[in-house]
Write a protein that binds this DNA or RNA. Structure first.
Lengths: 346, 346
DNA sequence: TTCATTTACGCAAACGTTTGCGTTTTCAGA
DNA sequence: TCTGAAAACGCAAACGTTTGCGTAAATGAA
């Protein structure tokens, strides 16, 4: 390993001079010739500062920890997580940071020690934690060490990024009623399972209330986010309420399941039934028909959250950020078909 | 920050004693009472060893770098990568390591400096690099620093993990011919684009050769891995060769595109046409019909590669590992329909 | 009592940086 | 020639550990 001592020796200067020149603390004055000698020596030897030594003295590691707790066994495999991660990594690398990826588990209620050791050992300068599902024990640990933190999807953390799920729900419902639909079914999840889902439903309610449509009277079946559950929810909805001309699903996966199922039952999408999703998974665009959905601009989350984190590290107190989702209109929605009094189609 | 000095003071021992006891270098003898005092002090103060200091003296960081080069702009977003990553992370955390995730880019031919700095600065003790696509400049950099490395999907690296793509191709082709199919179409990619794809095709060839079926005479259309390209390849195949009763796609995404397209053309899958994929993406099982495909046991790659890496770090020279893929039979394949002389259906 | 040996522990160097402060050199002004 | 100040650079401490070696106390043998 080539150290700064080697560089100093080769440039015939002291270690401190070499360090100051190489770390560009240009407040100090050094003669042109000295600077050149040092840079040359450094290049010729291929010197790179040892990060452990730097960290020891500076107290910073230039490491950011991305924390995506492992819920139900699954870690950061959700498509959304990967997009965000990718953004964080890109920003880190562009700004001289490195990204540690951690998926802490809960082992009978207690946070796994590997994770605690990482935080306590001083590995990361900052943390970006996925808080879409509140996992209090993990949050507690994170707080405890006082490391600058940004929380994604949290509703309470001082430094947070969240998506405006109310708006998203509103957008999608408004799109449907604007198309003239009145018999609208909902594929949701049970209340309280996911704050995000609750908010999406709330957003829908805002629109129906405006129009005097009673949201609670709309037929609704709950699933569990999975494609399968979407399929069976769709079956139930359409058999108990054949008059429906539109179905709003709370996420894309259930929307996909619903579409496949309804197609199998010989319904034409969107001619007879309009279907919407939420999330804008990449496959939503490749689906047949492509799915009208809500895009949360996840690709930008990485950069935005890192920007916020760097502010926090710098001692500032950035405001929480609320990301505006966008309605993506595709082929799974169409104007309400001419109303058929009987209501039923086959 | 509570240091080992604080612990030593509180336990009224020297720093070295505290260190020796806490690091469990139990070759040394210490009286029961001293040990208890030190442990107690450490607990009461909540002491955790500073990792930078430890790294500086020990020369190791207990950090493993997962390197998934960013090809065509996309990073580790491929489903496969995420599964592997998840496995690596789990193994790391179970063994006291931490995982750094890096997606180096090529900026007009040169490896981005953030990545080089990471390696040169001594961040990782070891590297697991995705080498499914050879990116020589990156590999060169990695070699240069002599950090223990395991390469995934490489054909040449001394320490490597690879999937037996020959076998995979064989399995899927054998399944199809066993079902009685004789008119078989191939959706591939151009030769030389992907070593893995080439091998899969080779594997198929082995089976057809055995049966006296000339592989090169089978109708074949190349795509580019994408769902869309699978769809158009399927169209071309079935219009130019209406006698086909089976189509093997080199990956799941193209198989999905093909199925959707053929269904849109009113072909019944699998009654009229059997279709196979390769990869066993999670959605392959949720597809309609679910897709017969090859599973590469990606979930185990993380653990296996980490195990190998730890061996390399320990100075051993583990053998390359070849993972046996498995055929997953689902609903997209069926026995060859009774042969219709005209060959064409509509 | 003396000497050798074991047991139990402490001293201080080392890892590779950064940085406060001190020292030497240079040079202009008188 | 002398003075003072600015310019250019070096000394050494510090960051928090680990670890080779040395030393004091206790023990046993003679």
């Amino acid at each position: 390993m080539v150290t700064i001592k080697d560089v100093a020796k080769r440039a015939s200067v002291s270690v401190s001079t070499a360090s100051r020149i190489l770390s560009r603390a240009t407040t100090e004055k050094f003669s042109e010739s000295t600077q050149v000698r040092v840079y040359r020596a450094s290049l010729e030897l291929g010197y790179r500062a040892n990060f452990a030594a730097q960290s020891l003295v500076s107290g910073e590691t230039r490491i950011i920890a991305s924390v995506f707790p492992r819920i139900y066994g699954t870690p950061f495999t959700a498509l959304a997580s990967v997009q965000i991660l990718s953004g964080i990594e890109a920003f880190c690398s562009a700004n001289g940071y490195h990204m540690l990826l951690s998926s802490p588990r809960l082992i009978d209620g207690k946070v796994d020690s590997s994770f605690v050791n990482m935080l306590a050992g001083g590995y990361p300068d900052g943390i970006i934690i996925d808080s879409h599902f509140q996992i209090d024990p993990i949050m507690e640990v994170v707080q405890q060490f006082g490391i600058p933190t940004v929380a994604l999807g949290s509703l309470s953390h001082p430094y947070r990024l969240q998506s405006d799920n109310f708006l998203g729900g509103e957008l999608v419902m408004r799109h449907i009623v604007d198309l003239g639909h009145k018999h609208i079914g909902i594929i949701g999840v049970p209340d309280g399972v996911s704050p995000a889902a609750d908010q999406r439903l709330m957003g829908m309610r805002i629109v129906t209330d405006e129009l005097g449509l009673e949201f609670d009277s709309l037929p609704r079946v709950n699933g569990n986010f999975s494609s399968d559950s979407g399929a069976s929810a769709a079956t139930e909805l359409i058999t108990t309420h054949p008059e429906l001309t539109a179905i709003l699903a709370i996420n894309d996966r259930m929307a996909m399941g619903a579409i496949l199922q309804l197609q199998a039952m010989n319904y034409l999408i969107p001619e007879q039934l309009s279907i919407t999703g939420y999330d804008d998974l990449s496959r939503a665009g490749e689906f047949n028909p492509s799915i009208t959905t809500i895009n949360q601009q996840l690709a930008s989350w990485g950069e935005l959250s890192m920007q916020m984190l760097l502010d926090v590290i710098a001692g500032q107190q950035p405001e929480p950020l609320v990301i505006q989702p966008r309605l993506i209109i595709r082929k799974s929605t169409a104007p309400c078909p001419i109303h058929d009094i009987s209501g039923a189609n086959r």
